[in-house]
Design a protein around this nucleic acid. Structure first.
Lengths: 376, 376
DNA sequence: GCTGATTTGTTTATTGGTTGAATTATTTGG
DNA sequence: CCAAATAATTCAACCAATAAACAAATCAGC
């Protein structure tokens, strides 16, 4: 079957786009293979011819994205295959996070392995955005040097922040006291990071992306993270849904009890008042019910088959589970047809940094042609 | 700028895919141009060369999708341009709808003009699914013949039903008394419809798609329709989001008052109990508040900038507006940054049939290469 | 230990599709 | 009537995938 490629892009397609797509296809096929596939196996899996796959693989090997494994896995007769695998010495993603009481950096290589992890505990609130980002920049520079000492090349960085992000601008991060901060710009100002592509995103979004890497099977799920606020990251078919302006996932302010407790946002009965970190710590009896009501809304609306509880929810998972599931059974219209699956997050407090690093390396995985061009 | 084409498809890309994409690109560029663009204008708009555009346009003209307009719009010096426009005599989409008290068919041509509209009022509930679909099939056959008399060729059909749809199967349509009905199969059994590609979808989804065509500017919005139940269709960036199993948009069973009135679904406090057709007719005082709470949830979750009230809500729009907007202002976290826009639907009761016809003709617009292959 | 079967990977000619430059066509303005 | 300008077409070159033939490296059987 041939691809349709009728994506909504208004850009023309040339032959080089074909190559770019097929390079990505080969790379992801190798990445998703359990064992080390041969060129022939990749050809069979993708539908491309062996000749084409050979040419593509040669480019990817030359560009340092794939490696040929000498002791190839054998079976039956015939010329022995050459195993292919993602290289662990090529490009790497640099994940960064800035939060209320710590700064963190994380380096992930193309295989998804965490190669470096640096954390500095310190209250960020007394600092200006510029000061905090300068300090984070120093941490990032150290991580980059460390990574390069390991033979890695940092291809790009992504920054996780607890706030609303639009067009690379942190519009507002209440818990940090930030407003309209050009975080990527300030980071790139650090000499050791000059020229590095830097993106910013909401921490819940990136944590969801981190969970995706670990999750394996489910490409569509809602990740809900309880930190100071409650945020959610929605992954639809392996891609983050960010909303039109990047302001999606504000599940903490879903109304669960319309005339309930007043919330700092000005409304009444927000989920955050019943299942926020303080409520959880206080063993608030309504937490599970409130979560169940809010999550049922998400499922009714979006038909999300899996919900992952992360952040501060993860440690309370077993306690909350029954209550949430009871509400889901009652309130989800299609619960009878297929129950919603509830899971605790596999990653802990470092989900967001980890996800940020994944997001950065993902750019290379999704568009290897761009990397090959850069690498020359 | 070149397209990346790194869609998640696991299919290989060949040169023919490039042509398919660029054919669609040219067609949609012509469709979205206010005036009749020349080949040169299309080239400038798309980034393709004039030579390529000429070749593509020739194919589209030969295949009966575009027409050259003799009196081209003139300006300044130089050889006069040949205007291009979608043909109104080529392929057409056949929209079908079956609902509690009527059957309907609708033919829309490539330009989006409604060319035929047939409605039969009759209670469908006493009929079996087979009987109802046979009757609808006769209506569809008539619409098809009428369309062909007008020089149109029906390219495909889409059917709107008030129920849950998965993989072309109507899993359950409570108000019709249907369960696990292979509606496309039964329709194709009608001799005059043999060989026609038929799809099924939920009525709210298709109504949303119908509204998209009329709406013009906003490619992302939530359409909410109050019929017997309350359904919603979510259009993200011009495409319908159907959920993983096609069960999205069940907004009628969002919880608005957790311990409120019992609902036929077994839960308590569902939106439907406060803003359903009966509640609206009875001038239920809580309708606007309930709608506001539910819609605020959607916006917080998905960052949808526009909400369209359709179906039974449209006539009550002015009465409900202030109440809904007040709740949105209170409960949407980002309301201060950019208010949610609320609109009454432009289409009336025929939104779903109309949307179904649009969905059918959309297939041709999105993949003209397939049509050209079929047309020979 | 040789021979044939088998599978992997590469080479080569062909095909399909876009590009860029040159060419032709048709108008306006002086 | 000619020059400038704009539209559309033609044609050689290029790029990428394909199909088929070919080379390489192993196993199985005698």
């Amino acid at each position: 079957m041939t691809a349709r490629l009728t994506s909504k892009s208004t850009a023309p397609v040339r032959q080089s786009s074909v190559r770019a797509h097929n390079l990505a296809l080969v790379l992801s096929t190798v990445a998703n293979s359990a064992d080390r596939p041969s060129r022939a196996a990749v050809a069979a899996a993708t539908g491309l011819t062996r000749a084409t796959v050979s040419a593509l693989v040669d480019d990817l090997v030359a560009g340092g994205l794939l490696t040929e494994l000498d002791p190839a896995p054998r079976t039956g007769a015939g010329r022995p295959a050459i195993g292919l695998a993602l290289t662990s010495a090529g490009p790497a993603g640099l994940g960064l996070e800035i939060n209320v009481d710590y700064r963190a950096a994380c380096v992930v290589d193309l295989t998804g392995a965490v190669r470096r992890r640096l954390v500095e505990h310190a209250d960020q609130r007394p600092l200006t955005a510029g000061e905090a980002l300068a300090a984070l920049g120093r941490l990032a520079a150290r991580a980059r040097l460390d990574a390069e000492a390991d033979g890695l090349t940092v291809a790009g960085a992504a920054l996780a922040v607890p706030g609303l992000v639009t067009d690379g601008l942190v519009r507002v991060a209440p818990n940090l006291g930030w407003q309209d901060v050009d975080a990527p710009g300030l980071l790139r100002a650090v000499p050791e990071l000059a020229g590095l592509p830097v993106t910013v995103d909401n921490e819940a979004n990136l944590a969801a992306l981190g969970e995706l890497r670990v999750t394996g099977g489910d490409p569509t799920f809602l990740y809900i993270s309880g930190e100071i606020g409650i945020g959610a990251g929605l992954v639809l078919d392996g891609d983050l849904y960010r909303g039109v302006r990047g302001w999606s996932g504000e599940i903490g302010h879903l109304t669960v009890f319309p005339d309930g407790r007043p919330c700092r946002c000005g409304a009444h009965g927000c989920l955050e008042q019943y299942a926020g970190q303080e409520a959880l710590a206080a063993d608030e009896p309504l937490a599970a019910k409130a979560l169940g009501i809010a999550l049922a809304a998400v499922v009714n609306l979006l038909d999300v088959p899996v919900i992952v509880l992360g952040g501060a929810f993860a440690p309370h998972f077993e306690r909350l589970r029954a209550g949430i599931e009871a509400e889901l059974r009652r309130r989800v219209l299609t619960a009878g047809l297929a129950p919603v699956r509830l899971r605790a997050a596999a990653l802990g407090a470092d989900a967001a940094v980890r996800g940020a690093a994944d997001a950065a390396i993902r750019e290379v995985r999704d568009d290897p042609a761009a990397w090959l061009r850069r690498a020359g």
